[in-house]
């Protein structure tokens, strides 16, 4: 009887572990705090790429947004407005983000993914049709496609991972249809819950800010904070149109702003939807702008 009981418990425990492993993607085989995302076509019916013939290859992506501890260990300084080792780094512009990727790669003995030329103005960095020339930095950044170093996810990769990849349950937000379950955003990131309209003075007065990473429910792949906390830079130039019938899209060849995804503590829930597309000039940033890293498999 006792042996049968032990056997039954063992089966249940292993069963739960196997299920947990399946539900959280393939983090067991991934380096560091990365999760291996199995590629394929988009299964999240709410994705911009759903049914468009777009696919992504296998890749690694950060389980969490880059924390201030991780940032400071690599960069030696911390740009964040809200300071705390387990908080996501904030106030990061796109150039800071690619530089972080390369420096972390070098530190960990990986081949840097980006070629960064700070002296040559990027001819593909065009003036914004509405706002003019906002980006005063315009570093020329190109890629080493075969490198194993850290990089930013492409917009397609980010949306694929946020939408749950092959395990997608077609949630609106990353991991849920209830934004409160998975995201830190303006209503729940301060002293008390806010229920009225978004008004910046109200958000400020409520002391809204970033929260420690990984404190909300993860998505189908075991990724935390893909919706909310800080917005995350993607590699792509922003374009109003998205590609179709293509594997691994990399975005436009040129543009005036870079894509961010996922929404942050400052904004309203709609910007936390996995399909929401935001953009900002490469040198632009704010206290809700952070980064999550990716790597080639």
């Amino acid at each position: 009887m006792r042996r049968q009981f032990i056997w039954a418990v063992t089966v249940v425990v292993f069963g739960v572990m196997a299920f947990a492993s399946l539900a959280s993607g393939s983090s067991a085989n991934a380096p560091g705090n990365l999760v291996l995302v199995e590629g394929g076509i988009f299964r999240n019916a709410k994705s911009n790429y759903y049914g468009k013939g777009v696919s992504v290859s296998d890749f690694y992506i950060g389980k969490y947004e880059v924390t201030q501890k991780e940032w400071t260990e690599v960069m030696g300084s911390n740009p964040s407005k809200f300071v705390g080792e387990t908080l996501p780094v904030d106030s990061v512009n796109w150039y800071d983000a690619v530089e972080y990727c390369n420096k972390r790669s070098i530190k960990e003995g990986l081949k840097p993914y980006y070629k960064i030329d700070k002296t040559q103005k990027d001819p593909n960095n065009k003036p914004d049709p509405q706002f003019g020339d906002l980006d005063s930095m315009k570093w020329t950044v190109t890629i080493n496609p075969g490198a194993n170093g850290y990089r930013l996810p492409t917009e397609a990769e980010w949306e694929y991972a946020a939408g749950g990849g092959q395990q997608s349950k077609s949630y609106t937000y990353s991991g849920s249809n209830d934004v409160e379950e998975v995201a830190w955003y303006f209503r729940n990131s301060g002293d008390k819950p806010l229920s009225g309209p978004w008004l910046w003075p109200v958000v400020q007065q409520n002391h809204d800010q970033t929260k420690p990473v990984g404190t909300k429910k993860p998505n189908e792949l075991g990724l935390y904070d893909m919706s909310g906390n800080v917005r995350e830079w993607c590699w792509d130039w922003y374009s109003d149109t998205l590609p179709s019938n293509v594997p691994d899209p990399q975005g436009s060849a040129s543009g005036s702003t870079r894509v961010w995804k996922g929404g942050g503590w400052m904004g309203d829930a709609f910007s936390d939807e996995s399909a929401f597309r935001g953009s900002l000039a490469g040198n632009g940033t704010g206290p809700d702008q952070g980064v999550r890293v990716a790597r080639n498999k």
Binding site: L134, D268, F270, L280, G284, T285, P287, Q289
Partner: peptide, 15 residues
């Protein structure tokens, strides 16, 4: 024009 200012979708450049 507002450049890198708070908005309903977070820090943004907008009119």
């Amino acid at each position: 024009q507002q450049v890198n200012q708070p908005s309903i979708q977070g820090t943004a450049t907008f009119e």
